[in-house]
């Protein structure tokens, strides 16, 4: 028989785990389907598992490593009785009112794995890739989306970082610990990153910027030997002889599971109603980066996870459960 749960949370980044902490403390015995190991930000612990030091999460005066922070949140959720399952949701059916069937594993199975009275979507977002011809072939051979994982291998090398936001500058700054030189390649003439990060990057003698430039290809036979860069204003292309390329050009929401079932924004993010985590389907709540393309911080994500748990709790109470 299909298992029935009061609250099922899909995803286990700061949003999902905060929702789990609150729902567990409200005696709702939440099940968190946390995802499966992966290196492209759709994994247990979410995007912070691929980051270095988190300096802006309140409560950590000296900063904390992303994976460590997620380990702490996970243990906190478990302490209050949340159940975490290392698995990936393969299908959700939101076409009929609650309870909502949730499939793990074979999405075509007759019986769902679990039915949820209230469902919290916290599937987050993933890194965008450049999409140039040889990027995927050289992923792991010099192309990387994870500076903390791979920076070590570029000791005294010249490497490039693609992007102009906080993530790109964080990676660039982290990589200066290893690299002899880091070239940040940005398609505009100014950065999106916060002022403090910009200031640090401009001050770092190992970091240089290539403005109004896009990467059109990654070069190399068995590992990266350079990148082909196009200057957008002059349309000139040239080769930059780097051995590593770190991609941090932005994110897209992991909303494929609910596409066509929940109202989405034009850019694919889940639409929430007013100042709540409610979605277009009664009993389905969304929190974290899957519904936020503006703030996208660990702390706002955690905050919205708390909102989702409280919204779900109230919703269950109103139904008399």
């Amino acid at each position: 028989m299909t298992e029935r749960r009061k609250v099922v949370i899909v995803g286990s980044g700061p949003a999902g785990l905060t929702a789990a902490i609150y729902a567990a403390r409200a005696q709702l015995e939440p099940l968190v389907i946390e995802g499966e190991p992966s290196s492209n930000s759709d994994q247990p612990g979410g995007q912070l598992m691929l980051t270095t030091e988190v300096e802006n999460y309140p409560g950590f005066v000296d900063g904390v490593m992303g994976p460590e922070l997620m380990g702490i949140m996970r243990n906190q959720a478990i302490r209050f009785g949340a159940e975490l399952r290392t698995a990936k949701v393969s299908r959700l059916d939101l076409s009929s009112p609650s309870p909502f069937p949730v499939w793990v594993g074979d999405p075509e199975a007759d019986e769902p794995t679990v039915e949820a009275d209230a469902l919290i979507i916290a599937t987050g977002a993933r890194s965008l890739m450049l999409g140039c011809p040889n990027e995927e072939r050289l992923l792991g051979y010099g192309v990387s989306t994870c500076a903390t994982c791979d920076g070590f291998f570029f000791r005294e090398h010249h490497i490039a970082v693609a992007g102009g936001g906080d993530s790109a500058l964080e990676e660039a700054l982290f990589l200066t610990r290893f690299a002899s030189k880091v070239t940040v390649i940005h398609r505009r003439s100014e950065l999106r990153a916060s002022k403090i990060m910009q200031e640090r990057a401009f001050k770092n003698p190992k970091i240089e910027f290539l403005w109004d430039s896009v990467i059109v290809d990654v070069l190399g036979d068995t590992k990266v030997s350079g990148i082909k860069v196009k200057h957008t204003k002059s349309a000139e292309t040239f080769e930059l002889p780097v051995t590593g390329l770190f991609v941090a050009i932005g994110h897209e929401p992991n909303s494929a599971l609910v596409k066509g079932q929940l109202d989405l924004e034009e850019n694919g993010y889940v639409r929430t109603i007013g100042r709540s985590s409610r979605t277009s389907v009664d009993g389905v709540f969304a929190c974290g980066d899957v519904q936020d393309h503006i703030y996208r911080q660990a702390i706002t994500s955690a905050g919205s996870g708390c909102m989702a748990a409280i919204d779900a709790e109230h919703w269950l109470e109103e139904r008399g459960e």
Binding site: S38, S39, K88, L139, G140, G142, C146, C149, D150, K223
Partner: peptide
């Protein structure tokens, strides 16, 4: 030539046969 971790390499009779890069389920 490991340039990314985790990297898993399967060795058979001492020779590398397959290389898996990145965390996988």
């Amino acid at each position: 030539d490991v340039m990314s971790i985790p990297t898993l390499i399967l060795f058979k009779d001492g020779e590398p046969e397959v290389r898996l890069i990145g965390a996988k389920p």
